[in-house]
Amino acid sequence: MLVEDMVDTYDNLTVKTLLMLKWTADHCSQVSYVVKVDDDVVLNVRALSRVLAGAAERGWPLVGRLLRRPAPFRSPSHKWYVPRWLYPEDALPEYLSGPSYAVAGSALRPLLRAALKTPLLPLEDVLTTGVAADAAGLARHHVPGLDVFPSLLWLTRPCLARASLSTGSLTAREIRAIWDTASRPPAGLCWLLDRLGIIDQGREW
């Protein structure tokens, strides 16, 4: 566990993420990838490792769920509010969704150098994988199955989460249910879907 000298607030998530990337660049720069994951995410580590091995062969610097220039939220009551004075453009840059994405070890220092020259935004994924990545000339690559939102069906069939590489916006109870179910051999409907190859990533748990 790493503890940095900073105020741990949601608006400082950008600072926390950059400090994490800096520590990795200083101590583990030889890694193929570092994966940033929120604490409400279930991660299929083995399946993601296999995907990232393929991404490394292709030389992909940034990997995740790509969001293509969405409009910023302008309502002050919204969790991800971005005032126009802070970001005047009508569309955000392309970026990778924040709950889980991967940064190649070779991209860490260029990304950090660019981020230090970028006005701070409270949206860490937008700043890190969007604005700073553009400034550093780092390409983003979309990977299906990363940062999937849970469906209502998962409340009764947690094994369906095995079809994803990572699943976010979960409660602690939902995380436990998915983990327990995904860690057991599939049965019933999940066995059929597994045999059909629909949730074959579940074999990687």
Score class of each variant (00 low, 15 high):
L160K: 05
Q201C: 10
G202N: 06
H141Q: 00
R58K: 06
R58G: 00
A161F: 03
T9I: 09
L196W: 13
T167N: 09
K36C: 10
L146M: 11
S77K: 14
L165R: 07
S75A: 14
L123M: 12
A56V: 04
T24M: 08
T128I: 15
P72W: 06
A172H: 10
V3W: 13
G188F: 05
L189R: 09
L189V: 13
M6R: 13
V45E: 12
V82S: 07
L155C: 07
L48A: 11
W154M: 11
P76A: 01
P150D: 08
R195H: 04
S151P: 00
S49N: 12
A115R: 05
A53K: 11
W191A: 13
L67P: 06
Y87Q: 04
A177W: 10
L160E: 05
R68W: 15
P150C: 07
D125A: 00
K16W: 09
P122R: 08
S169H: 15
V51K: 12
D125H: 03
L86C: 05
C190M: 08
T181I: 10
L52H: 02
V37T: 12
L96A: 02
S75N: 15
L43T: 11
T24W: 01
R195M: 11
H27N: 09
S49Y: 13
L96W: 02
V31C: 10
P72L: 08
D147N: 10
V41I: 08
A114N: 06
V143E: 10
S100H: 06
R109I: 07
V103P: 02
A115D: 01
G98H: 03
A56L: 07
E124P: 03
R113E: 12
P110A: 02
R46S: 13
Y87C: 01
P61I: 03
R140F: 08
S106I: 05
R195P: 05
S29D: 07
A136E: 04
W23A: 12
D11S: 10
I175N: 07
Y10R: 14
L192F: 13
L19M: 06
L96P: 03
K117Y: 01
I178G: 09
S100L: 06
L111G: 00
G168R: 13
A132H: 01
A47H: 06
D147L: 05
A139D: 12
A172F: 08
R176A: 10
G105S: 01
Y101T: 06
L66K: 14
H78P: 08
S77Y: 13
V82I: 11
Y101C: 04
R65G: 07
T156N: 09
W154R: 09
L160P: 04
A91Q: 12
P76K: 04
P83T: 05
Y81T: 00
K16D: 09
W85R: 14
D194Q: 13
I175Q: 15
V126Q: 00
